[in-house]
Amino acid sequence: MKEKILKELYTHQGKYVSGEELSEKFQVSRTAIWKHMNNLKKQGYTIETTHKKGYRLVETTEKLIKEALKEHLETEEIGQEILCFDSIDSTNNYCKKIAKDAVHGTVVISEEQTVGRGRLGRNWSSPKGEGIWMSIVLKPSIPPTEGMKMTQIAAASVCKAIREITDVEAYIKWPNDIVVGGKKVCGILTEMAGELHKIDYLIVGMGINVNNQEFPEEFQGIATSLTIQKGKKIDRKTLILCILKTFEELYQHYICQGTLEKTLEIIRLYSAVLGKTIRIIKGEEEIKGKVLEINDEGLLKVQLEDGRQEMLISGEISIRSENGYI
């Protein structure tokens, strides 16, 4: 009911809707409408209440509203269904619950995640109303071996959108992190379900530190946010729309052409690792190597200290710079 009321308010944005109208439309009491309005206000929605006029939603950039996103979305597939939550354990977890019946391109967004996570089981801090915690359900007709290319598409999309919307100089730390000023602003987690020769669904999760002002102690040395780097707050809605638009462009190019060419142009242009010496970490083992290239499959070609050349597949590998995170 709360979502129905919110949609009605947004449909009449800028105008008052009387409690009597809402009561009649949804067949509930005026008291029930009043209680739902108070709950929406507690969740952060700015709703004006005026005697004899009713309720009016004041749209702000502080809250992500499904209808506001849908109104300005220019994609055909990605975002054809959008689900917005005030709080959720993890957008990836929720996507896995609904993936079987969800339409391709469904986007799940939450104001906060209570158990956000990244690659290799790492924790991800997802405070309320500060970042973009978002996942996309995909159902492509591609071999399972190609599935992880969605991570490359997501990384290129986020990096390009950040640069376009905020002018912040973001870079891609292969394969799934976006960094600014040597610190992480975004992590991408791609998960897949299917059989040996068939993908049932893919979930691409993106956690972006947008307006975070501080971080838990364990992340302070490696994490930053766009607002810290820019020196002012960023409109999350505008950034989400740009990410989804760019993701669709790169995704459709890959599906139609069978190549990551457009995606890799962005990844190579804004790579944080090309030409650099990195530490390659797998479990307890750590070796050094210089990054020579990112090949046409999106794999990292490195020259190890002993002179051997090797292609790195993301999998269980982490990479760091010689002396720090990146």
Results as ranks from 00 to 15, higher is better:
Leu202Asn: 02
Leu73Glu: 10
Lys41Ser: 15
Val58Trp: 09
Lys184Met: 02
Trp34Ser: 13
Ala223Val: 13
Ser271Gln: 09
Ile109Phe: 12
Lys52Gln: 05
Gly187Val: 01
Thr61Ser: 15
Thr224Glu: 10
Arg320Pro: 03
Cys242Val: 03
Arg117Ala: 15
Asn38Ser: 14
Val107Asn: 08
Glu59Lys: 13
Gly129Asp: 04
Lys301Glu: 14
Asp101Trp: 01
Leu40Pro: 06
Tyr254Arg: 04
Gly182Lys: 01
Asn212Pro: 00
Glu164Ser: 08
Leu299Thr: 14
Asn295His: 15
Ile280Thr: 10
Glu217His: 10
Thr60Lys: 12
Ala156Gln: 10
Thr224Arg: 06
Asn39Ala: 14
Val103Thr: 14
Asn323Gly: 09
Ile153Asn: 06
Tyr201Arg: 02
Asn212Tyr: 00
Val28Gly: 11
Ile88Arg: 04
Ala223Lys: 12
Glu169Pro: 03
Lys232Phe: 13
Asp200Phe: 00
Ala155Ile: 11
Ile317Met: 08
Lys70Ile: 10
Val108Pro: 01
Ile319Thr: 08
Cys242Arg: 10
Ser135Phe: 05
Val185Asp: 04
Leu299Phe: 12
Gly129Phe: 00
Leu22His: 09
Arg56Glu: 10
Pro216Ser: 04
Ile5Lys: 14
Val179His: 05
Lys70Asn: 12
Glu8His: 13
Thr11Leu: 13
Leu69Gly: 11
Lys42Pro: 07
Leu57Trp: 02
Lys4Ser: 15
Gly258Gln: 02
Ile313His: 12
Tyr171Met: 10
His51Asp: 04
Arg119His: 13
Leu9Trp: 08
Glu248Lys: 02
Thr224His: 05
Pro144Glu: 09
Glu111Trp: 08
Ile228Leu: 08
Thr31Tyr: 04
Leu202Ala: 04
Phe219Leu: 11
Lys41Arg: 15
Gly129Thr: 01
Tyr171Thr: 09
Gln303Asp: 10
Tyr10Glu: 12
Thr91Arg: 03
Met37Arg: 02
Phe26Thr: 08
Gln257Thr: 07
Ala154Val: 05
Glu195Thr: 11
Gly116His: 13
Ile162Asp: 07
Lys7Val: 10
Lys100Asp: 03
Gly116Trp: 12
Tyr201Glu: 03
Lys233Trp: 13
Gly182Trp: 01
Arg236Thr: 12
Ser23Gln: 09
Gly54Thr: 07
Glu71Ser: 14
Ser157Pro: 14
Val28Ile: 15
Leu239Ala: 08
Ser271Trp: 07
